[in-house]
Write a protein that binds this DNA or RNA. Structure first.
Lengths: 234, 234
DNA sequence: ACAAAAGTGTTATGGGTACACCCATGC
DNA sequence: GCATGGGTGTACCCATAACACTTTTGT
């Protein structure tokens, strides 16, 4: 409140926590830093804010630069502003987490950044406070996905119930009863059963589904409490 | 990613959304701006970040300056960074929402800011994008309070069940069955019944309770889903 | 005695859980 | 025809919701 002009001894940046799923594990996409400080170390993808863009727009730009993809699911996580987050200069950063379909990503990948996927359970050391940021992102992902149909963003457009179940099991590190899982998800009315089956992963084959998130608000209530009670008690 | 030096054509600030409860309505504390631009208009309390403090620390400082109170419940809401949020200069702001007991506040109030409480349903016009920020804060408060025992922060240390129920009813704009409400809240084991009664608001009198949030994690599961299913369907 | 509000009891319903069972296919 | 994993049926349990009922006090 001391008037509008302040010295600004800091920069403003965004960092992206990018989650993917490979059919086995929940994964995080990180890059190998190509410049000092900490050249060669693993880091979240990030970038500085331009004068004419919001943090959201910066995050979209950064994500597109790395993944080549537009229109990803993205959400603001938190603003990290501790004066000593790491590094010499003070950088205030807004973190975003994004969910992407690994297959789509693989078609568009930008190798300039030397990106790599790590299983969420075996992350390498990251620079600055990025490890803590990722922890918070994992927590928020689990929290939010327990109440909202988010995780579909990690799967291809067509997926089977066993695939979906595996994904949830990977995210929550727990197992679900397949009968109850099926019923619960179908009861949301968000899924549409297709006519063809995936015959690769089992003899009988599993029907494909697509998700229709237009029905989302109607289906919200049934998502509430999904996973939650078990997850919280683990 | 263009190197570490950038021109910084913006300031960095915090804004506080302060909720209170007067026994009737959920209220918002705003101040009358004492300087240009928009002198005399209603505004959230805020302030610029100092060089050696985080946004959280700045918010605590700002809150203490206005309310005289320390140790308030406070939570980071969102970072607002649109280039044209309002005002000539570009200001990036992290919003925090805080919950305070109106009685305690009244003892410590700092009149310099010309503060005023407004019912959440009859808010005046606020400067810049503050009205939108408040909307988001209301949403988040309702969302989070449906799953976590937050609202106690708005009440005195001693409160009665009817008071607590009125608070929930004010926050969610709906009515609850007192029997079910009592059972639900007592089942969390977070409340301790005291021996004395409030004899002012009814003939029979209502027992006072205190809340023991140390037991919080244990009580979490029982809070999940509280209010939620009704609230979401409204 | 009566009104008013606090607080308890009772019952029906629906969702969650566990687990048994059936089904389609490849080998 | 048998093993494998997809998919369905079912019975129990418990939380919720609705609402009737009792209790305590002031007037």
């Amino acid at each position: 409140m001391k008037g509008l002009l302040k010295e600004k001894n800091f920069s403003f940046a965004v960092d992206c926590i990018i989650f993917g799923y490979d059919g086995q594990d929940l994964k995080l996409l990180v890059i190998k830093r190509s410049f000092e400080p900490f050249k060669g170390k693993w880091s979240l993808v990030g970038g500085f804010l331009e004068d004419d863009e919001s943090a959201e727009e910066a995050a979209v730009r950064v994500l597109k630069g790395l993944t080549g993809l537009d229109g990803l699911y993205m959400e603001q996580l938190h603003c990290f502003s501790e004066p000593k987050r790491g590094g010499a200069e003070r950088i205030i950063s807004v973190a975003f987490f994004a969910l992407i379909d690994i297959q789509k990503y693989n078609q568009q990948i930008n190798e300039d950044y030397h990106p790599a996927w790590f299983s969420i359970n075996q992350l390498p050391e990251l620079i600055f406070d990025h490890s803590a940021i990722v922890e918070l992102a994992k927590e928020k992902l689990r929290y939010k996905a327990a109440l909202h149909p988010l995780l579909f963003e990690l799967l291809p457009d067509k997926f089977t119930m066993p695939q979906l179940q595996s994904l949830y099991e990977a995210v929550y590190n727990m197992e679900f009863d397949k009968g109850n899982f099926n019923r619960k998800l179908l009861s949301t009315k968000l899924l549409e059963k297709l006519e063809d089956k995936d015959m690769l992963n089992s003899k009988k084959g599993a029907f494909y589904y697509t998700v229709n998130l237009k029905k989302y608000s109607a289906g919200f209530k049934t998502f509430l409490n999904f996973v939650s009670s078990q997850y919280i008690n683990e």
